[in-house]
Amino acid sequence: MSNRARAAADHHPYDRRRLAVLAAALLAALALVMGAAVVGPADAASAAVSAGKPDKPGKPGGGGGGGTTELTYAALGDSFAAGVGAGSYLERTCYTSSKSYPKLLDADSDKQLVAFPACSGKDTADVVSRQVATVPTTAKVVTVTVGGNDVGFAGVMQNCFVLPDDTACASAIATGAAIAASDAFAASIASVVNSLEARAPGAKVIVTGYPLLFWEDSSGVNPKYSWADEVNDETVILNDVIQSVATTNGAVFVDVEDDFAGHGIGSSSPWINDWKWVTATTPTAFHPNATGHAAYATAIRAVPLS
């Protein structure tokens, strides 16, 4: 345990029994956020969100069938695409949100969201094996955010920030870094893009990266979390790999690192939700809030669709 973590533990106001209860709640929350508890029902829940969309006043042709100037749009991926952390959840299995960036883009006059299978805890294998099949073959725009769960996002968050353990944290980061650098991971990102291009040949495939979760001061330090800079550095590497593979295979990559700059956890205006014991059962931690999803949507809108 680091000196900072040890000092915090020595002065923690809860007794051991209380801490055990909170730890149990924590693990349950992590299961919800990272998807350990979303296996069987996830398909039905995400499909329900995709179907039966109400008409939207002011959009050409209303909702449902879309208008002549609207581009058929599908949104795939993990919790960052589903909207975990943004609130206003449409269901409680995948935690898709009405404030997620796909729903914000759906409100634009030029796009009609007809498939929204993105789901908390999912990885590249789920996108390829399940989510791609929900995309209409006539889709013109597809967004996807995926890869974080492939490299062990949940384990890093738990061991480095929620129940910090220096040895376990270092191991989780090293394991994730090795996966990100592997040929197998590169192949999995390529498979996502290639599967989408085969499914909807006329679609513009837009792959987004991940924001740096933690604010750092001028010395590269986060005042609360000693492992923040290391995780930020590994996120940059992860994004670089995803970008390289996605663009090589014909997709457009949207890098949101600069968009979120100055708004990580620990900043004066965070767009990422921090972990709090009091919200242990709420799946929000270490994910963008509603403002963060608005930033995602703004970055994606900068991509020319024609």
Results as ranks from 00 to 15, higher is better:
Q112V: 11
P211R: 02
A178I: 09
A115C: 07
D106F: 05
R130G: 07
K99E: 13
A118G: 08
T137W: 09
P136E: 05
Q131P: 02
S97Y: 06
P102V: 07
G148T: 00
R199W: 06
T138P: 06
I189W: 04
S182G: 08
A200E: 03
F153N: 01
F116N: 06
A115I: 05
N149L: 04
T93W: 10
R92P: 02
S182K: 08
G155I: 11
A203S: 04
N159P: 03
T93V: 15
S188E: 07
P117F: 10
T137I: 07
G121I: 03
F161V: 01
A139V: 07
L90C: 02
G176A: 10
G155R: 12
A187Y: 09
Y101G: 01
Q112A: 14
C169H: 01
A107T: 09
T208P: 03
D217N: 13
Y89K: 05
C169D: 05
L104Y: 06
K204R: 12
E216N: 07
T145S: 14
G176K: 01
S129A: 15
A187L: 11
V205N: 00
S188K: 10
I189P: 00
P164D: 04
D106R: 07
V151M: 03
A125Y: 14
F161R: 00
Y210S: 00
K111S: 13
N159M: 06
G209Q: 01
S182C: 09
L212H: 09
G147T: 04
E197N: 14
C169I: 01
A154D: 06
C160M: 05
S97C: 07
G176C: 10
V142K: 01
A181Q: 13
S109R: 14
P164R: 06
K122D: 03
N194R: 12
A200D: 06
A115R: 05
T143E: 01
L163Y: 09
I173K: 03
A203Q: 01
L90H: 02
A190T: 06
A125W: 13
Y89P: 00
F116T: 05
A180C: 10
D217M: 09
R92Q: 13
V207S: 05
A118L: 08
V192H: 05
A118Y: 08
V193C: 03
A118K: 01
I179V: 15
V151F: 08
S191D: 14
T175M: 11
A118D: 10
T134P: 02
V127P: 00
F161W: 07
S191W: 11
V114F: 09
A107L: 14
G121S: 10
D106L: 08
K99W: 14
Q131N: 09
V128I: 13
S97N: 08
V128W: 04
V207M: 13
S195N: 06
D183W: 10
T124L: 13
R92W: 13
A107W: 11
T124S: 15
V193H: 02
